[in-house]
Design a protein around this nucleic acid. Structure first.
Lengths: 346, 346
DNA sequence: ATTAGTGGGACATTTTTAGTCCATAGAAAA
DNA sequence: TTTTCTATGGACTAAAAATGTCCCACTAAT
């Protein structure tokens, strides 16, 4: 498959991909806009005059365009090249630009879109996990404390973590105490998986999801709880999933009162025990020992993972108030749906 | 097909290919030579310390190698990448290095090797023609007089000539007067095809192949002949094929004396009416109005086209005395065979 | 202890690239 | 026909990036 090859290439010569996309899309623009000049092309392709000039000269040297007094035109060869590259490039560069577009509109650091839709094809989750693992490894820097949440998306990350320099110094913790969900997808278990993959250490903390106010107070003063809360203050990285509010509430066997609160508040998304409405307002939160939204602001590396068209609304809900440094790794299904929602609302 | 994609890409971002090949072969070396250091890698891969360093760092950032105190090792991911790229890259870069190797040993400017073997697959000739056309277009510069010879290889070039700036100023001529061969492959006809493809002009000159010495003398003084000879002096580019000596002699219905001369002189290759032995010595030449080997030395752009394993010996014979500025466009079949012959002789 | 490797830091120098302006030449509009 | 607009290509400076070359600290094997 060509896309495999493109992926391999992206890894091998990443600095060239920009250039390639630049030239490809310039060629496409030239094809569409007939004879077009350097400055005009620059404007429509968001290139400076010089950049546009370089691109044009490169394309000319490759024999793909003809540069004449009235502007640049595609040659026959250029047309052939366009048609032979179109499918794979459009696919690839479409996801790329979609990611950039979403990143800008949502107002976060980066959005990575992998091909496919996790709703339709479960194996896409693995690709999301792989991408997230790469981001994590390359950006963790000299961070030490990593908080992870539960969920299948986050669970897809550890299998793709290869040992990297100083991986052992990391300490993984659950971003939120809690039991009750599927054991394999609990934050505690996942943090252990991460620790194993890295040869690192982890701390666990179990916390009953539903407690009376009094019991809660008592629990909060437990030494183990205090220790965890101290760690949350020093967290260097959070890897978290995003859930659909209703589904999460159902999974958690929430009480009638809770369900009503979520219903009234029009909760859409959920992340680390917080429920958000479409504007990112916190509608409800689980009382548990966990990282707080205020603390997130000071965490340098925030990686959110969630895929599938059905999660688009939930993702947008959380992202409406997500810290700017957030990186979202999602799939095409969710990304396209998000794009539609965003467009509808403007 | 991946190779199509690679080809398209080579056109779109030619500057990437070097880098890609550099990194790919470095990765391969690292895989083979176990943990290897920056300087050692530099030596074996012919990179400066800095270049090796850059490559290593790029591979490390891509997660393909691990750099540790004892040197660089390939990661699991790197191994996967190698196996997924191996076939297409080795194919491509094999031809590339083969071309470089031949260029150096033969002592000419450049050798371009296209995939396939014209002996086995006639469509390979078209690829050779396309490549030759590209070289011609990109290197002709502000040359004006272009001399072409006959033969199927040269005839494969004009179909791939797209109009380029100032193509009309060119003048195509036959590198050698002569009739008797297949009409469609005669130099005169081919020069007309070139002219048509470029929207340029051409001059023809017919010259009987076999003439008595006296008739020859008379012919040489014809105004048309003198005009052609004047053009040969000013030739800016020669596009020529290379023939197998015996086959050419057969095609030309050579006389017994000629055949004997060729036999005795161990003629192997033929080009513009000259026959060469394995050391590049001229064994015999047709008496005709045509470009002379001495004149070739002053022609800035010399492009030789010939493919097929069966022509390997002939190509090497001519190349043994070919001017240094010659560019050879050939196919894998001929190139591999040439490599074998060269190795046997050393 | 010595030697031959390793990676990584540092720095001057060269090379490449980017930004900008201008001259000039066609094409289209007036 | 003249004017205006937009085109390319040349030229130049400032800035950024790549390169060659050291040195240093460290490690493992001799």
């Amino acid at each position: 498959m060509n896309s495999d090859f493109l992926e391999a290439q992206r890894k091998l010569v990443p600095e060239m991909m920009d250039l390639m996309q630049q030239r490809y899309s310039a060629l496409k623009l030239i094809e569409m806009s007939g004879p077009i000049g350097r400055r005009q092309l620059g404007q429509v392709a968001r290139l400076s005059e010089r950049e546009a000039r370089n691109v044009l000269e490169a394309l000319r040297d490759a024999g793909l365009i003809r540069i004449e007094k009235e502007g640049a035109t595609v040659t026959e060869e250029g047309r052939q090249m366009l048609s032979s590259l179109r499918t794979s490039m459009d696919d690839w560069s479409g996801r790329n630009t979609l990611g950039r577009y979403l990143g800008q509109t949502i107002g976060i650091r980066k959005v990575i879109v992998v091909p496919g839709d996790s709703d339709a094809n479960a194996s896409v989750k693995a690709v999301i996990g792989k991408e997230a693992a790469e981001q994590f490894i390359s950006l963790i820097g000299d961070g030490r404390i990593v908080a992870v949440t539960g969920g299948s998306s986050v669970a897809a990350i550890p299998p793709h973590i290869a040992k990297f320099p100083e991986a052992e110094r990391l300490k993984f913790i659950a971003a939120r105490g809690g039991v009750g969900e599927d054991i394999g997808l609990q934050a505690n278990v996942i943090s252990a998986l991460f620790a194993q993959a890295c040869g690192a250490t982890y701390s666990t903390f179990y916390y009953p999801e539903t407690l009376s106010e009094e019991a809660h107070e008592v629990f909060r003063k437990e030494p183990a709880a205090l220790e965890m809360m101290a760690l949350y203050e020093k967290t260097d990285c959070v890897l978290h999933g995003i859930g659909d509010a209703k589904k999460m509430a159902a999974i958690r066997n929430s009480s009638k009162e809770e369900l009503e609160l979520l219903e009234q508040g029009k909760a859409l998304g959920e992340a680390f025990g917080y429920y958000f409405d479409e504007n990112g307002n916190v509608v409800y939160r689980l009382r548990t020992v966990g990282i707080q939204t205020e603390q997130l602001e000071d965490v340098p590396l925030l990686i959110a993972v969630a895929g599938g068209a059905s999660k688009a609304a939930a993702i947008l809900a959380y992202m409406a108030s997500a810290p700017r440094q957030t990186i979202l790794v999602t799939d095409e299904g969710a990304a396209l749906e998000m794009q539609q929602i965003v467009r509808k609302n403007t």
